[in-house]
Design a protein around this nucleic acid. Structure first.
Length: 818
RNA sequence: GCUGGAGUGGCGGAACUGGCAUACGCGCCGGUCUCAAAAACCGGUAACCGUAAGGUUGUGUGGGUUCGAUUCCCACCUCCAGCACCA
């Protein structure tokens, strides 16, 4: 936009982008003379264009990075691309190009766009996960895990997306569907590679306590996902047999109220126990029916619980009671032991089921002195109380009984105190081409053999055909598949699955510390200096997946002796927690909805940059609201940010062109400047960028009202520079400075200046504001009291009423109670 | 159901440890400049009563603590997000 009414942002922005690149202004170097600050934003998947979500994420990070740089920190602020993944493959099938070509084109374009935003990245450290010198180290890490038994292959039912034609990790199944295409996920029995993340479940849970500076909800989500539950595994015996049915419960205090047992329809014992009984046919029919139901339907809460009696009985080991064994769809094979003891009086699901099928009930926890009959109750009582009908445990509070019963059962050998976890091992095999080949060779003689370290990388072959007709494309690349066994040198076949891309992103923050290191995934000395990441910024959608996996990687790499760093203050991350502080930014909405092509409500950053410049876009996206919350994009409101930049520009013009006399700054002006410095500094520290910007606006408004001076202009430009760096560099130069604004130091405020000459004291009568008076700071209470009582409008309110009390907050407020 | 969060003008939002509710911006209204417009600059803008001075009400709802509550406590409502027949 070449309009004389507006400042020439197009020229200015390209000028400074070039200047920063030419002078390597943001190059990070290991140095001992300055404190380090590692600021990281989640790297993007190179889908082509950047969207407003990227703009917001990276602008938040850039302000923090530039601010820390001005404060004199040695800032590491890198950027790269999470470049493997399925969209590239889909694009290849559709456009008849190669995934590599498509990806590289996207990366080039995204880089151009990121540079156009003026982000202060050290581009010398750029990494792409699809580059052989990156994924080589994926393979290297995998081999280490294989050696230590953390990577293993096993046949098991796995999540299968029929549309993507690949397996999925549990973390990638969202509401029973594929996280990417939402197709309903099926179960399939396959032999697949897993990572033993369950070995780290205790530490992954325990160390959440160290993450004091993470959003609580992310910590809660991870704890939830890991899902520890403590209880007792109870051994019921099948009547007329030596077979044991283990049952897991967190409420062992209710064991004396167990009136029946329920097995999941898939439970292997079910088919065995019905052999030759009259119930056999009905049970088989039921099992068959459940098997046909999809997982989604079966787990929806409002569906009525169904089940049938198996005809068999179990012996409750605490009282040798015979209780019937049922099978029902509300018991899941995947959780616990696939069998439950049912206590209808103290579990609502059991209650509903027992009522429906007229099964017996017995109260064993009494909530008050009144003792309802089990036939009278209308719902299960799940709260605390006193044990009844519980043998030698009668009369104990149930929480106490829980411990005593568990200990007693363990001692008597009829149960075992156990901890159950929700977290499962991480399935990483993908039947896809565009990923890291798993460095394993299958030999008829030697079995599963790892590729030798010196033979890495196992390169992805380029000449592969993409038909989109299913099956792993690598499986059809004979040249790739057929190889020799590293051990016996005989003919062998390569693994044709590739790694899930979350493997790639689980350690890229370590690679950034030494992106060109060629002896290991990273240089231990460099990670020791730069790690942990001081501030990590990204979307909430990674609260579980990426953040949990990265924590896992950091822990085992430390255990392997490959990684070694400690947090400087020791508090946030006493070692092996990768991210000290986490900020999850909110989404950018338009018309109350997420921007999407199908809804036609996408605002393209490119168009905004053309119209107003990158500085305006940066400023607006931060000014619209706090970074953690959702923001509503407004085409109208962004003009306010543009107007403001022009207003600052004209302020600088006035100061430089009119040669306004350099007067020594007045008291009030100094106070305004220092107050703004304090507010902006405090707000940036807390990531309250929206209020930081409004503080600068107030300073500029003051300058217009009081008459602009060089002092005010310089302060405003310095404070604004992390937000609108191009315009501020230019204005800084116009104001007669050289050497770049990012090296000019962050302004400091003087608390002395902030001390006011006069304090405004609010006078309240009975808690309501009635008047205001100015007093000298530190005026005695007696004097203030006297002044308040003498105030005309106050007199009116206290007339004829006895004053009961005075509340005085020095230099701030006085409340007269009448 | 459990977990985490949010509810403030016409709109986005502010109020850091209880002390002037609505800063800053958008929008709207008025003015200055101009032949006119754009741009800019200045002023006004929670609701209600009042010409005004001034007053009353007001931060999802209902209670409580306090001299004083958007802020703390209790109960509830609504919305968002995550998990969930988890035994």
């Amino acid at each position: 936009m070449a309009d004389e009414n507006f400042y020439p942002f197009t020229l200015i922005e390209s000028k400074w982008q070039k200047a920063w690149a030419d002078s390597a202004a943001f190059k990070a170097q290991h140095s001992k003379d300055k404190p380090k600050y590692y600021l990281l934003e989640m790297f993007p998947y190179p889908s082509g264009k950047i969207h407003m979500g990227h703009v917001r994420n990276y602008t938040i990070g850039d302000v923090a990075a530039r601010y820390k740089l001005m404060q004199g920190f040695n800032v590491l602020h890198p950027m790269g691309f999470d470049a493997f993944g399925q969209p590239a493959e889909n694009a290849a099938i559709k456009n008849k190009t190669h995934p590599a070509a498509w990806t590289h084109k996207c990366i080039d374009w995204m880089k151009t766009e990121l540079k156009r935003m003026g982000f202060s990245y050290d581009w010398d450290r750029e990494v792409s996960t699809c580059a052989a010198d990156y994924y080589k180290w994926n393979q290297w890490i995998f081999l280490k895990m294989f050696e230590k038994g953390l990577a293993y292959k096993k046949a098991s039912p796995v999540n299968w997306c029929p549309s993507c034609e690949t397996t999925l990790a549990n973390e990638e199944v969202v509401n029973g569907g594929c996280w990417r295409c939402h197709t309903a996920v099926e179960q399939k029995e396959l032999e697949q590679w897993f990572l033993k993340i369950t070995d780290y479940r205790e530490r992954l849970l325990e160390d959440l306590n160290k993450l004091m500076q993470w959003p609580q909800r992310v910590v809660a989500m991870q704890a939830n996902w890991i899902g520890r539950s403590q209880g007792v595994e109870i051994y019921f015996r099948l009547k007329g047999s030596e077979k044991i049915i283990p049952v897991f419960t967190t409420r062992v205090d209710t064991i004396f109220g167990a009136t029946y047992i329920v097995l999941a329809p898939e439970h292997p014992l079910v088919k065995e126990m019905i052999k030759g009984t009259s119930q056999g046919k009905a049970v088989l029919k039921f099992i068959d029916k459940v098997a046909k139901e999809s997982k989604v339907v079966r787990s929806s809460a409002d569906v009525k619980k169904e089940g049938v009696f198996t005809g068999a009985y179990a012996i409750n080991p605490v009282n040798n009671e015979e209780i019937p064994i049922w099978t029902a769809d509300y018991v899941l094979m995947e959780y616990g032991t696939g069998a439950i003891m049912a206590v209808p009086t103290h579990d609502q699901r059991d209650f509903l089921f027992a009522k429906e099928h007229k099964l017996p009930m017995r109260i064993v926890i009494q909530k008050s002195l009144s003792f309802p009959d089990a036939t009278q109750i209308s719902e299960a009582y799940e709260g605390d109380g006193i044990q009844v009908n519980s043998g030698q445990f009668d009369g104990l509070p149930n929480q106490e009984a829980k411990i005593k019963i568990a200990e007693w059962m363990e001692k008597s050998g009829i149960g075992k105190i156990e901890t159950h976890w929700r977290l499962r091992d991480w399935l990483i095999s993908r039947q896809r081409y565009w990923g890291t080949p798993i460095p394993i060779i299958y030999c008829k003689k030697c079995g599963t053999v790892p590729v030798a370290y010196e033979d890495l990388p196992v390169e992805l072959p380029q000449d592969v055909v993409f038909t989109g007709e299913g099956g792993s494309p690598l499986g059809k690349a004979d040249k790739f598949v057929n190889t020799n066994c590293p051990k016996c040198k005989g003919p062998a076949r390569r693994e044709t699955d590739t790694m899930a891309t979350f493997f790639d992103s689980s350690w890229y923050f370590l690679r950034f510390c030494s992106p060109k290191f060629d002896k290991a995934p990273f240089d231990k000395e460099e990670t020791k200096y730069w790690m942990p990441v001081d501030q990590y910024i990204g979307g909430i959608e990674h609260a579980i997946l990426h953040l949990l996996y990265s924590r896992f990687f950091t822990k085992f790499l430390t255990d392997f002796g490959i990684l070694n760093f400690s947090a400087e203050d020791g508090s946030a991350s006493g070692g092996n927690e990768p991210f000290v502080k986490l900020l999850t930014q909110g989404m950018v909405l338009k018309d109350g909805e997420v921007m999407s092509k199908s809804k036609g409500n996408v605002v393209d950053p490119d168009g905004i940059i053309k119209k107003y410049g990158a500085d305006t876009l940066r400023l607006y996206i931060l000014f619209a609201g706090p970074p953690q919350t959702e923001m509503e994009w407004s085409d109208k409101a962004i003009e306010g940010s543009f107007r403001f930049l022009n207003r600052v520009w004209r302020l600088v013009e006035k100061v430089t062109s009119h040669q306004s006399p350099v007067t020594s700054p007045g008291e009030e002006e100094k106070r305004q400047i220092h107050s703004a410095i304090k507010r902006v500094t405090d707000d940036i520290e807390r990531f309250n960028f929206n209020t930081a910007i409004s503080a600068i606006m107030e300073l500029v408004n003051y300058a217009y009202q009081a008459g602009p001076t060089k002092n005010v202009a310089e302060a405003a430009v310095l404070l604004l520079s992390p937000f609108a760096p191009h315009a501020c560099e230019e204005m800084w130069e116009l104001l007669g400075h050289s050497g770049g604004i990012s090296r000019s130091g962050w302004p400091k405020y003087d608390p002395q200046v902030l001390r006011q000459k006069e304090a405004l004291v609010i006078i309240q009568v009975n808690g309501r504001v009635r008047s205001k008076i100015n007093v000298a700071p530190g005026t005695s209470e007696a004097k203030v009291k006297e002044m308040a009582l003498a105030d005309g409008s106050v007199k009116k309110w206290i007339e004829g009423k006895p004053v009961k009390n005075f509340i005085i907050v020095p230099d701030k407020l006085i409340n007269i109670v009448v």
